[in-house]
């Protein structure tokens, strides 16, 4: 639905976006994640045609924003970071104006009414926008983006300024919209992206540093392939049996968590999946395996790791040093 190729935006010598490429499938909810000033809003402004890119191109449903701006703009509903509201208009007047401006063809009164019901602004419909609370202003901004039922929605920090109850409502709204719209939303709030989005793009300093589902991201980045298992049996015996599992580097017991059941942390060599061998070991020795989970990083950890200064994107990384080699060199060093 949306194709972004090699997007670069320079402000003078400052590079806000550096060859960003990605594509969004129809009907997905894509989360744009990154610290403030990472280039989220710039990307969104370029997709919607508010800014032009210094390099690269954007196409929405096959239409280029440069060659057919009107076509692209018809397909997009955009909520900028600061909702573009006229403070001297009532909600009704504003929505009527935006309806006309966007040249919407749907039955006017019915369509606007539906949207007001959807974002719950009926009770302020006749009030001046300037007198509304931040939360209501944000909703009027979302209502404006929904006018004309555009297939693509671009929402820049849609839940900013809302109270927790409203945030949940808006998130549910976005999830529902995601069923028949393509949604791109930006946020620097992780749980939000985690709760709503099917796919996450992490952007930092104008570069995409990660791309994937929330689960994939946290899985990919956990370098220590650790498993946490609860196994019934005496601690000493279980530890001894577990040592026989192939590729186990480190074992640790967290002590008794349930009567007669201890929790263990099992760390394997990078890239090796321990789960099958572990299961086989448990059955061989008749140790009931009661729980098994991988200790992936939380998305929060992922985010901090990705956006820290020292992080190098995967594509630029050198192949990881194999631990055994590293150990040998270390040992060699000691011998020498």
């Amino acid at each position: 639905m949306i194709e972004v190729k090699n997007l670069t935006k320079r402000y003078g010598s400052n590079v806000a976006l550096d060859h960003v490429s990605f594509s969004v499938e129809e009907g997905t909810i894509l989360g744009f994640l990154g610290p403030n000033g990472a280039g989220k809003s710039t990307t969104m402004n370029i997709i919607t045609g508010y800014l032009s890119a210094s390099e690269g191109e954007v196409t929405v449903a096959g239409h280029s924003i440069l060659d057919e701006p009107a076509e692209v703009k018809k397909l997009i509903g955009y909520l900028p970071e600061i909702p573009p509201l006229y403070m001297d208009m009532t909600v009704k007047e504003y929505l009527d104006f935006m309806y006309e401006l966007k040249k919407v063809k749907l039955p006017k009164e019915k369509h606007i009414k539906e949207i007001c019901n959807l974002v719950k602004i009926n009770e302020v419909y006749k009030r001046l926008i300037g007198n509304l609370s931040k939360g209501y202003k944000q909703r009027v901004g979302i209502a404006q983006a929904l006018l004309g039922n555009p297939p693509v929605l671009i929402l820049d920090e849609p839940t900013v300024g809302l109270d927790p109850k409203q945030i949940i409502e808006i998130r549910n709204l976005i999830k529902n919209l995601g069923r028949n719209h393509t949604v791109v939303l930006s946020s620097h709030i992780l749980p939000e992206v985690q709760a709503v989005c099917e796919r996450i793009l992490v952007i930092n300093k104008g570069v995409i540093v990660a791309d994937g589902t929330p689960d994939k991201l946290s899985h990919d980045l956990s370098s220590d392939h650790r498993l946490i298992a609860r196994i019934e049996g005496s601690e000493h015996e279980v530890l001894q049996n577990l040592r026989s599992v192939k590729n186990v580097l480190e074992l640790q017991s967290f002590g008794e968590k349930e009567p007669g059941v201890c929790e263990y942390s099992i760390e394997g060599a990078p890239g090796k999946d321990l789960r099958r061998d572990l299961f086989a070991c448990c059955t061989r020795y008749g140790m009931p395996l009661l729980a098994l989970r991988s200790s992936d990083l939380s998305l929060e950890d992922v985010f901090l790791r990705l956006t820290s200064d020292t992080y190098v994107p995967r594509s630029l990384q050198r192949p990881a040093v194999i631990p055994s080699e590293a150990n040998q060199t270390k040992e060699g060093g000691e011998q020498a």
Partner: peptide, 14 residues
């Protein structure tokens, strides 16, 4: 100043 130009310039009008 009020950033309302974002609504105008991203609407399908020239």
């Amino acid at each position: 100043k009020n950033k309302t130009d974002q609504a105008l310039l991203t609407a399908p009008v020239s």
